[in-house]
């Protein structure tokens, strides 16, 4: 970790703002390990974040970073990717960011198969504002805005991404940090919309209210509840309760937006070898 900080954190960005026991730093480490392992040039990587605890990571790390507005990271990233298709664009969002205020952009970025690498850090709550419930808060959980237990059903975000047209959909947890790194690498290899949900822990905003104040206990819960996708499929229906699959959940081959756009524009008469060099 120290060498990762030396190499990839902006000088002076520590101390960070995350609470002790928070999972965001672990997920960030998985991301940076992938970057390091793959030898990606920092100049060619863009990290776009929304608003929330997880998105704050973008200010700390030494890439081209864009910290946008709440829910809109994917729309900003769409513009960036279209202007600079040569750059590798990551989008870092929290669960509220990606599934509530930004849900519509998630659907349409996936539908377009934009060549973006999305990482949703799902800690079950709005952490930055003090632990309110989100569409990914498990039903029955207590949060600052569901003091008697959340009665709403939880959104299946990976299912949504798949249905909307994402060509790579995966899930990991903060505990499974090596798996997260591997999945990020596979997502990069997919030319198209790659969506990874990482289940993380918020001991301050979620754990304390739900009898899991100890971050280690929350990691333990992640370890025990997660099953590799291929094993999860074979579980008898009764045994699946309280478990969730991790690993690659869905993969498909489809042309990404830019490929389709180049096809359309060349039909419209564009000399794509000289694209973007001005008009007339």
């Amino acid at each position: 970790m120290p060498e990762l900080i030396m190499d990839y954190f902006r000088p002076g960005s520590l101390p960070h703002m995350w609470c002790p026991g928070c999972g965001t730093g672990i997920v960030l480490q998985s991301f940076l390990r992938t970057v390091q392992r793959m030898g990606l040039s920092r100049d060619e990587v863009v990290v776009v974040g929304g608003i929330g605890c997880s998105a704050r990571a973008v200010s700390y790390i030494d890439f081209n970073t864009v910290h946008t507005t709440h829910g809109r990271a994917l729309a900003f990233a769409t513009g960036i990717k279209l202007a600079r298709p040569d750059l590798l664009v990551f989008v870092l969002m929290g669960d509220g960011d990606a599934s509530a205020i930004g849900g519509n952009h998630l659907i349409h970025a996936a539908r377009r198969n934009m060549d973006l690498n999305v990482l949703v850090i799902n800690n079950s709550v709005y952490g930055m504002t003090g632990g309110q419930c989100s569409p990914l808060t498990p039903a029955g959980s207590k949060t600052a805005t569901s003091p008697y237990g959340s009665m709403e059903r939880q959104l299946n975000l990976t299912g949504l991404a798949e249905a909307a047209g994402a060509t790579f959909v995966a899930r990991s947890t903060a505990y499974h940090s090596r798996l997260t790194s591997d999945l990020i690498e596979q997502g990069i290899a997919n030319k198209g919309f790659s969506f990874i949900e990482v289940i993380s822990q918020c001991p301050t905003g979620f754990g304390r209210k739900n009898k899991m104040a100890d971050p280690a206990a929350m990691l333990q819960w992640q370890k025990q509840s997660a099953l590799p996708a291929e094993k999860f499929i074979d579980l008898p229906p009764g045994d699946a309760k309280g478990k969730f699959p991790i690993g690659v959940l869905y993969k498909n081959q489809a042309p990404d937006f830019m490929e389709m756009y180049l096809g359309m524009s060349s039909r419209a008469g564009c000399d794509n070898d000289n694209r973007g060099k001005g008009n007339e």
Partner: peptide, 30 residues
Amino acid sequence: PPLGGIFIQMEDEISSIAAVIGASLGGMKA
């Protein structure tokens, strides 16, 4: 499209201005 520029119909006006800002950050007049 024939000029090599980008036209994209977004899902709403919020994402439209966001994409415009993103493209401008990337160096395009938008």
